[in-house]
């Protein structure tokens, strides 16, 4: 019996180490098709580590011996509540810290952006072996501390208050599924500590106009009783912004684009179905004004059932 459990834990760890995820922006599950049932309440923490040595200055890929590798780590508290079977609310708050392996630049740390998402599943079409669902997700995120945004690549965030809308479609046949979604992120202007800055011209103001963004996610995988595992293709496209000039520093309103691939898994302990483990990994294939990051993360969640008449699972 003990052996069995050990094997499962090992398997789980294996999955975590292989696993991946995307979303440094919304390090949570606003882009998956998994819903909590009514009155289920999930709480937990996830850890994320992202690191890059090469980066794109505009479209030119290079490295920089004056910063070496830049690491961004975060621990995020996440909570998710089932208002109904068709409507979930998700919230998260990460603490982020950064460092550079070479040079003298000082790392940054602090609480980053709190986020809140409403995830709604208005349409579900089922047959015996197939299921199609349509989701709409609306969200906001905003900085909860006055962190430094004008110190890229070591800033912990970009400082804008964002609202986003996402449409998500999910198709499942047997244990196999595929999910596709797209989001539009409207970003507010941000303020710098200095009163003039250069983009493609000099601006005499502390305020920076942040271009909006589009996010796309595509995944295929399996869903079983205790295990969800998927492979993802992610794209982030900034709708405007400008390129980092040759040998310049990055800037919050740069045109930051990336395409990445990853894996993600969620495992529910069969003997303790209140406990979920997640693991993820992600690798940037191509980008513009971003680092070629390799990221991995893991999470541990506990699910309560607040509904007296319903079991937790």
């Amino acid at each position: 019996m003990k052996n069995n459990l050990q094997r499962r834990v090992l398997l789980c760890l294996l999955i975590i180490s292989l696993a991946f995820s995307y979303s440094k922006l919304f390090a949570q599950t606003e882009h998956d098709a998994i819903m909590l049932n009514k009155a289920q309440w999930c709480n937990g923490f996830s850890y994320m580590n992202s690191k890059w040595t090469d980066y794109w200055e505009g479209s030119y890929k290079r490295n920089n011996d004056n910063i070496g590798s830049v690491s961004t780590q975060s621990v995020m508290y996440m909570t998710n509540y089932g208002i109904s079977d068709k409507l979930n609310v998700l919230a998260g708050l990460p603490y982020v810290w950064t460092s550079a392996s070479k040079g003298t630049l000082h790392g940054m740390k602090g609480l980053q952006d709190a986020s809140l998402f409403l995830k709604w599943k208005p349409i579900t079409i089922r047959s015996a072996k197939e299921k199609f669902s349509l989701f709409a997700v609306a969200g906001v995120s905003t900085p909860v501390s006055n962190y430094v945004i004008d110190f890229l690549p070591l800033s912990i965030g970009l400082g804008s208050t964002n609202v986003s809308g996402r449409l998500l479609a999910d198709y499942q046949k047997g244990i196999f599924f595929t999910t596709i979604s797209g989001a539009y992120v409207r970003r507010s202007n941000v303020k710098l500590d200095r009163d003039a800055y250069y983009t493609t011209e000099l601006h005499n103001t502390t305020e920076v106009k942040m271009p909006d963004m589009a996010l796309y996610n595509f995944s295929v995988g399996i869903r079983k009783k205790y295990l969800v595992a998927e492979a993802l293709l992610n794209n982030m496209t900034t709708l405007g912004g400008f390129d980092i000039r040759k040998n310049d520093m990055p800037f919050p309103s740069n045109r930051m684009n990336s395409t990445s691939v990853g894996v993600h898994a969620k495992y529910t302990l069969p003997r303790f179905t209140h406990i979920e483990l997640t693991g993820e990994a992600d690798y940037v294939l191509s980008g513009r004004n971003v680092g070629r990051a390799t990221s991995y993360g893991a999470g541990l969640y506990y699910i309560f059932s607040l509904h007296p008449n319903k079991s937790s699972k």
């Binding site: 906001v140 809308g165 507010s188 202007n189 009163d195 005499n204 103001t205 106009k209």
Partner: peptide, 16 residues
């Protein structure tokens, strides 16, 4: 929140 955000113009009036 969404309405507030979208209603807020992003245009910036620079210092001079």
């Amino acid at each position: 929140l969404i309405i507030i955000q979208f209603a807020c113009s992003k245009s910036i009036i620079e210092h001079t």
